[in-house]
Simulated scan of single mutants.
Amino acid sequence: RGQLFSRMLEPFMSIWYSSISFNAACYSALNECAAIQLLVNSHDRRVLVKPTPSSDRDSINWSKEPDKHKCRKIECSNLMHQIFDMWGLDKELHYRANGKLVTADRKIMLLFDFNRPEAWRGLKMVNGLE
């Protein structure tokens, strides 16, 4: 059955020139935490997402409706402009990378590698990218 091969259960992060979003699998993987912190590695093109208390100065509330496991699109133009410029990404496209669960100091985090992301123009995937 096709549903057995669905990628909906894999954590994905999508980036646009002005925003980011996460699928519901990310929210579930991080135990439905209310807030996250983003750590961007400019040289390795990776983003680490770690749960953090909502009171933390650098926290981002990522859940639209905590009871319904829906994450929202987060507007962050300044950050995304810097990332697109650093990584040499096309601002007309949006990119998606799947995440891997990683642990450090007994804390669960998600690591997204944008070295070989899927590139999209609207709802159509763009082929032939690195």
Rank of each mutant, 00 (worst) to 15 (best):
C33M: 02
P51Q: 04
I36M: 06
W16C: 12
L30Q: 08
T52C: 11
Q37R: 15
R45C: 14
P51N: 01
Q37L: 08
N23C: 11
C26M: 07
I36S: 01
L30G: 07
Y27L: 13
V47F: 04
A29D: 12
I15V: 14
A24Y: 09
I36T: 06
V40C: 14
T52I: 11
E32M: 10
E32Q: 10
V47S: 02
N23G: 08
Q37G: 05
R45A: 10
I15H: 02
R46D: 01
E32I: 02
A24S: 15
L30R: 05
L38H: 02
A34M: 04
A24T: 13
C33E: 03
P53H: 10
A25Q: 04
I20A: 14
D44E: 14
N31K: 14
C33V: 10
A24V: 04
V47L: 12
F22E: 08
A24M: 09
Y17E: 13
I36P: 02
A34S: 08
N23R: 07
P51E: 03
S18V: 08
A35M: 01
Q37E: 15
A34R: 04
P53T: 09
S28D: 09
I20Q: 09
R46W: 00
A24F: 09
I36D: 01
R46C: 11
C33I: 03
L38D: 00
E32A: 09
T52A: 05
S18T: 14
T52N: 01
L48A: 05
H43I: 06
V40M: 05
R46G: 01
S21D: 15
D44Q: 14
N31G: 12
A34E: 06
E32G: 11
L30A: 05
L48Y: 03
V47M: 13
L30W: 09
L38A: 03
P53L: 08
I20L: 15
V40Y: 06
W16V: 07
N31E: 13
I36E: 01
T52M: 04
I36A: 03
I20T: 13
E32S: 12
N41E: 12
S21K: 10
V49I: 14
R46N: 03
A35D: 02
L39A: 14
S18N: 15
P51I: 01
V40T: 15
E32P: 00
I20W: 05
S42R: 15
V49G: 00
L39F: 11
N23V: 07
L39G: 02
A29C: 12
K50D: 03
S18Q: 13
F22T: 09
D44V: 04
V40D: 06
D44S: 13
S18L: 10
S18H: 14
S21V: 08
